[in-house]
């Protein structure tokens, strides 16, 4: 159906004006009551005293945060030195998340580009193929990755039997294993936003660049990448943030030596060794880091659109 020569004036999307608040109320009740309030409770708990078998004593204390940053010696009465243990864990998590993001970007961008430049039904099929693994339970995916890369797992067996290596490649319980796990967990989050951005890309720009003697590389770096940058940034955020707080990949693939934030926090709420305020404090610190990243992102978005 051909569009008329004059576009209709912007129709108002207020068919149900006046019903906005009652319609949005259930969402506010559920999310407000079961997420916002709990996070506030978590903040409060981080400022309480720990109870020895888990739980808290309702007594204000900064002990949790203190324990995180400072080392006051065995009996707690030495002058405070910086406690590096936990800071290191956080730093390592940031590092791991950043590397995973980079890994996803290097593999994800060409994949997204490739899929977006397929035509018709092919494109849907490729998209489908990329997203199916995501729908498999994260736990299952992490387990299968663990199974695959174990010292005596199928991957090593295959490599050994073909003679390419003489000893099993030790990947499990290393940084690389965690990287692989994070990549496996969150790759589609990188591919899909980039795919959306490339799909919207106007190929006439590439044609114009070619017409003006640009090589393929120049076109890619100077024309295409800036045009799809919003998708790339969205993808990076969508991989970095969950990777930061990931639990399963470091837990199942990283082992004890690759303790990340997720494992640290989980440990605080398990049984007798737990320290609830400390766990809450660590969660608050993680949340703050994520909020900082998201705020920077949001600010950059509004600046670009403004």
């Amino acid at each position: 159906m051909a569009a008329g020569p004059q576009p209709t004036p912007t129709a108002n999307t207020s068919t149900y004006a006046g019903f906005g608040i009652p319609l949005i109320l259930p969402a506010w009740v559920i999310i407000g009551f079961f997420l916002v309030v709990p996070v506030c409770m978590m903040l409060i708990y981080s400022l309480l005293t720990k109870e020895f078998r888990g739980g808290v004593i309702w007594e204000f204390s900064l002990a949790a945060y203190d324990q995180f940053f400072f080392d006051r010696g065995l009996f707690g009465d030495e002058p405070p030195k910086i406690e590096w243990t936990y800071i290191t864990i956080f730093w390592r998590s940031i590092w791991q998340a950043a590397l995973a993001t980079l890994f996803c970007l290097i593999i994800g961008f060409p994949t997204a580009w490739f899929i977006a430049t397929r035509t018709g039904r092919n494109r849907s099929i490729w998209l489908f193929l990329i997203t199916i693994p995501y729908w498999v339970n994260l736990l299952i995916r992490t387990i299968s990755m663990k199974f695959l890369i174990r010292d005596n797992g199928p991957m090593n067996e295959l490599l050994l039997s073909t003679g390419l290596i003489s000893e099993p490649i030790h990947i499990i319980n290393t940084n690389l294993a965690v990287q692989l796990g994070l990549f496996y967990s969150y790759l589609p989050f990188m591919v899909l936003p980039i795919y959306a951005a490339v799909e919207r890309y106007n190929f006439a720009l590439s044609e114009a660049a070619a017409d003006l003697y640009a090589s393929r590389t120049v076109t890619l770096t100077q024309i295409i990448l800036p045009a799809v940058k919003p998708g790339i940034i969205a993808g990076c955020i969508l991989v970095f943030v969950p990777s930061l707080g990931a639990f399963l990949a470091p837990d199942l693939l990283g082992g004890a030596k690759n303790f990340m934030i997720g494992s640290l926090i989980e440990e605080q709420f398990k049984g007798a060794a737990g320290n609830w305020p400390f766990g809450a404090a660590a969660s608050m610190i993680l949340l703050s880091m994520v909020l900082v990243v998201l705020t920077l992102y949001a600010r950059q978005q509004t600046r670009e659109q403004g």
Binding site: A27, G32, L35, P38, M42, G245, A280
Partner: peptide, 19 residues
């Protein structure tokens, strides 16, 4: 608000809900 659950890391949500 609607997007909030997506923005809060899962482990933070887990801890907060437990608490």
């Amino acid at each position: 608000l609607i997007n909030l659950p997506l923005m809060v890391p899962e482990i933070v949500t887990a801890v907060a809900t437990l608490i």
